[in-house]
């Protein structure tokens, strides 16, 4: 970095031009191939744990260093430019470190507040429509909570326990947001001042003032009668078909019940996508 630059070029425009032997680029090119192969092999041979991390990051840093130093000519730039470009990303590293702690903490609160992490697990299980064995892997909490996980595990896999799922999912949002106080006033908007009185409750963290009352209702109601079912759309499904399957042949016209119940999800009864999870309301006449 000291044997720098100002080799006077033939004319002004090329004063700062970089001239290095082609061979150098070919060597670096070769090294990049080797290093990429190495990091690929780390995965191929299934190296795990700290060694995997160490190797992957090592190869990553070396590759990045080669590209920046040789291909981007940073090694021949003057220190002023090098430091101006290479120091600021330090802010990013700090940000990454903070977010690593933060996400650990978020994970901890999720596991701690819903017992097992089963709440979101259930949501996801529903989404993936693979009950049963999948849940076993889904609930992978820290040791101290493992027992409880096993206790809840089997139930969780059953879509019928929707009430519990929803209840927990609610606290999921609350814990994850942790924002009850802050969001509440804003979300209170639609309902006006009256509802904002409930600012501190976790329910509000769901971010929907209109829903505040309803959320409570839902929890109590659902506790006694978990009647709603969930259905994951398969390719080729239409709301009409589902209605016929759920409410009986000839009741396809009741697809609007399903549509009404899933209005937040669907903009148009004709537009559904495979993989969507719909709430199937009970057949009400």
């Amino acid at each position: 970095m000291t044997q720098s630059t100002s080799v006077p070029g033939k004319n002004v425009g090329h004063q700062e031009g970089q001239q290095h032997p082609i061979k150098l680029y070919l060597i670096v090119w070769g090294w990049l191939f080797v290093l990429s192969t190495c990091s690929y092999l780390v995965d191929y041979f299934g190296i795990e744990g700290f060694l995997r991390w160490f190797l992957i990051l090592l190869f990553m840093i070396v590759k990045a260093g080669l590209i920046v130093a040789i291909f981007m000519h940073m090694a021949w730039e003057r220190l002023a430019l090098m430091y101006a470009i290479l120091v600021p990303p330090g802010a990013v590293l700090l940000f990454v470190a903070i977010m690593a702690f933060e996400s650990d903490y978020t994970h901890f609160t999720r596991v701690a507040f819903f017992g097992t992490g089963s709440a979101s697990a259930q949501t996801e299980t529903l989404a993936s429509a693979k009950p049963g064995p999948e849940t076993g892997t889904a609930t992978a909490p820290p040791d101290e909570l493992k027992k409880e996980a096993e206790k809840h595990g089997p139930e969780v896999s059953k879509p019928e326990v929707a009430s519990e799922g929803r209840n927990a999912a609610l606290s999921d949002s609350a814990a994850a947001t942790g924002e009850a106080g802050k969001t509440a006033p804003v979300s209170g908007s639609a309902a006006g001042a009256a509802t904002t009185g409930e600012a501190g409750t976790t329910a509000l963290a769901s971010g929907n003032a209109v829903g505040v009352a309803a959320v409570h209702n839902d929890i109590t109601a659902a506790a006694k009668a978990p009647e709603a079912k969930f259905y994951t759309l398969k390719p080729g499904d239409t709301l009409w078909k589902i209605a016929e399957a759920e409410y009986g042949l000839g009741h396809g016209g009741k697809y609007h019940l399903i549509f009404e119940a899933n209005k937040s999800l669907l903009s148009d009864p004709g537009k559904v996508h495979p993989g969507q999870v719909l709430r199937i309301p009970p057949n009400s006449g």
């Binding site: 996801e124 609610l170 929907n208 959320v215």
Partner: peptide, 23 residues
């Protein structure tokens, strides 16, 4: 977006981190 129940509806969201946005 975390898993959310709004107005009795189980919304399609789940597992996201609202606090990430704040950061």
């Amino acid at each position: 977006m975390p898993a959310i129940v709004a107005a009795g509806e189980h919304l399609k969201y789940g597992g996201g981190s609202p606090i990430l946005f704040q950061h």
